[in-house]
Design a protein around this nucleic acid. Sequence first.
DNA 1: GACTTTAGGTTGCGATGTGCAACTTAATAG
DNA 2: CTATTAAGTTGCACATCGCAACCTAAAGTC
Lengths: 158, 158
Amino acid sequence: MVRGENLKAIFGECGISAALEVVGERWSFLILRGTFNGLQHFEEFQSTLGIARNILSNRLGRLVEHQILKRQADSADRRKIVYRLTDKGRALLPVLIALRQWGERWVSGVPSNPVLVDRLSRMPVEQMAVRAADGRPLQLGDLDWVDQSELPAGDKAA
Amino acid sequence: MVRGENLKAIFGECGISAALEVVGERWSFLILRGTFNGLQHFEEFQSTLGIARNILSNRLGRLVEHQILKRQADSADRRKIVYRLTDKGRALLPVLIALRQWGERWVSGVPSNPVLVDRLSRMPVEQMAVRAADGRPLQLGDLDWVDQSELPAGDKAA
DNA sequence: GACTTTAGGTTGCGATGTGCAACTTAATAG
DNA sequence: CTATTAAGTTGCACATCGCAACCTAAAGTC
């Protein structure tokens, strides 16, 4: 399966290109990481990330445009603008964590400190993995691409 | 937790920046998606992705340099060069799938066809999620960042 | 109320990155 | 032995990035 002539079909419809059009630019992921860690204001992003002001302005604008962040006036100080994650933005958490875990394991080598834990159990979260419906982690060789019509009826999409 | 002064500590050590230095450039993810879907040769990437030849050459070189792909001579045709995923490259699968699922759900709107299924059960894979040790999916509010030293002893890192 | 500082930008300009087309070099096919 | 294919490289135009300086409006300061 997935060889030769039908590659183009797969590629054309793939959600990855769609995602990258929205968050694929340099700095976008780092800005999002910032919001997940509590950054809210322009000057906070600028000083923490060291990004150029014009680029930051542009990226925040694009993220707002794509409804990944929302731009709100700060009620306490009318000079300030608060950038907050939307549901769409929050949904990027698995991507960010998968990227972080990969970077730790394969690039920086050491598990980052602080560690991400389950608030209740205080235990570190699992390694991100592609999983079967029963929770089994799947490797590349355990996967197939099939046409929607070939699915056993009534399955929810992945 | 994670407010104000200790933000910089978190950011500096975060695996996300490490990961992005290696795979954060434009086209890198799309090239990797290609390899996961079976692309192997320069001309295959070029014609399928529509990327400029000089950029493709540069990106493949960088991915090889970072040991995400390996460059092998094709035994059958000595003009051809085969680009293959290394273990480090294969380990990016969760990132790619998380990105794909997000793009499907929040950008393109429709689940992509073909669907990624478990080879054995023929059922679509689970939605990628950050999970507790017991497999429970965790939302942002269910998570905390803690210093390594605060962990109950003997936990494996996340 | 004038004066300074802070927040969130915008503008200009040089350096870097991207995309296209043409060229190269080596191996293979006819 | 000529043509074609694979995998690049080179030159050049154009877009994006990053830095520094500037701008505007709202707070704070006295």
